[in-house]
Simulated scan of single mutants.
Amino acid sequence: MNPSNPLFSIIIYAIAFATAYIINLKFKFVNTSGRYENIDGLRGFLALGVFIHHANIWFKYINEGVWKEPNSNLYNQFGQTSVALFFMITSFLFVTKLLDSTNKPYNWNRFFISRIFRLAPMYYFSLFIIIAFVMITSNFKINVGIPEFIMSLFHWFVFTITTTKFINNNPLTVIINANVNWSLPFEWLFYFALPLISLLILKIKPPKFYLIISFGFVALFILVHGLELHHISSFIGGAIAPILIKYSSVKKNVNTVFYSSIIVICVALILFFKTSESIWCKLLIAIIFNIIALGNSMFGLLKSSILKFLGEICYSTYLLHGIILFTTFYFGFGMEASKQFSQIQYCLIIFSITPIVVLVSFLGYKFIEKPFMDLSKKIKI
């Protein structure tokens, strides 16, 4: 077996599901009757997909010293398609909330506070680890001027929205967490663009303050990152289902073997694409997502309590799995020793740390994410 063999991913999923099952036996905290339980289940599958994607990349990085996308279409799409679907989930959830608030005021203060408390705590926890690892691998020496060092910290403190610079001019900065932070500026772009989007939906328009902030953020983002239309299209793809749910009866007819089979066919067709940036690949991803968002449970799989458990902890999985990979191979075995591993030995190591990824993600959710989410609900605004 090698890290590009499909069996590699199947075993990782099996180990993760078994670990989640054991943890969930003792700590049940998933709402099994949620309004969007299929999407909750989908999240769990996607976060593990990103972990599998980076586990494949790490094998090449260890042996060649180059961080680049997998040669395998399957393993590249584990990462790219998963993130595209995460963007679609974000769009679906918040466009749905706007459509539900068409005739009543939308609480923008509550919205932004909830987003800050949702994304920031775990991100800053992971950032603290990244900074610590950067300094350790820099032998605790500051390699740049103090102003430049402080500015690099600032860029990361604001979710790398302004730019992604190496901390302390250390190229390991983006390896430590597998560079997963690249997607967070796009999440914030969507959130800050929402007041402008709401002009097309809400009868009671947002306060001018939020419209000005929204316009300014979007303009800054385009200036720094460009349009990145293939990512923007993911958010557009996620907004289709809420409109269909509100204004049509199509939702009543999709949880059938026929539509589940369409999803399977679309997944198979995606594997013909090297990257999800292709408009045709993105269309296939959007078809998959919208069928699921309209109520298809993929032969009942997405209703699994284990997948929903993994979906609940997926943000911690997303932010922390790269750090666990880095810790294992850089600090644990050492890069030189890791080069000596055979393909099967490497696979066995990944299998052995998969339960750790799930356990650490659970702890991150339980002790960091969930308390801050609960705290945000108590703030009177």
Rank of each mutant, 00 (worst) to 15 (best):
N177I: 07
L284G: 01
K97A: 00
I288K: 05
L172W: 03
I236E: 01
G334V: 05
K339R: 14
I213A: 14
L196Q: 10
I146W: 13
K208S: 08
P70S: 01
V50R: 10
L284A: 08
T160M: 05
S101Y: 01
N139H: 15
I197W: 10
L98R: 00
S276V: 10
G41V: 09
T354F: 08
L227F: 15
P3Y: 04
N24I: 07
I89C: 01
K203G: 11
F128A: 15
S91I: 02
S376M: 03
Y365E: 01
T256H: 03
M88Q: 11
F273M: 07
P242C: 06
K252C: 05
H53V: 03
L211C: 09
N139P: 13
H155W: 14
Q343G: 08
I150Q: 02
Y330T: 08
N109H: 08
F272E: 02
A337I: 05
I146H: 00
G216N: 14
I243G: 02
A47T: 13
F351G: 04
W108Q: 03
V66W: 02
I262P: 04
P195E: 09
L200N: 01
Y346L: 05
L319V: 08
M151Y: 15
V95T: 04
V144Y: 05
A120Y: 01
I10K: 09
I232C: 10
A193G: 11
T317R: 07
L194K: 13
A18D: 04
G44L: 03
K203H: 12
G364W: 12
P355D: 10
Y191W: 02
F186D: 06
F133Q: 06
S152M: 04
I167Q: 09
E336A: 10
I201V: 14
R118T: 04
K370A: 12
S9H: 08
V250E: 00
G65S: 03
E312L: 15
F94D: 11
H53D: 06
F190R: 06
L227R: 09
L189Q: 12
K378E: 02
F217E: 08
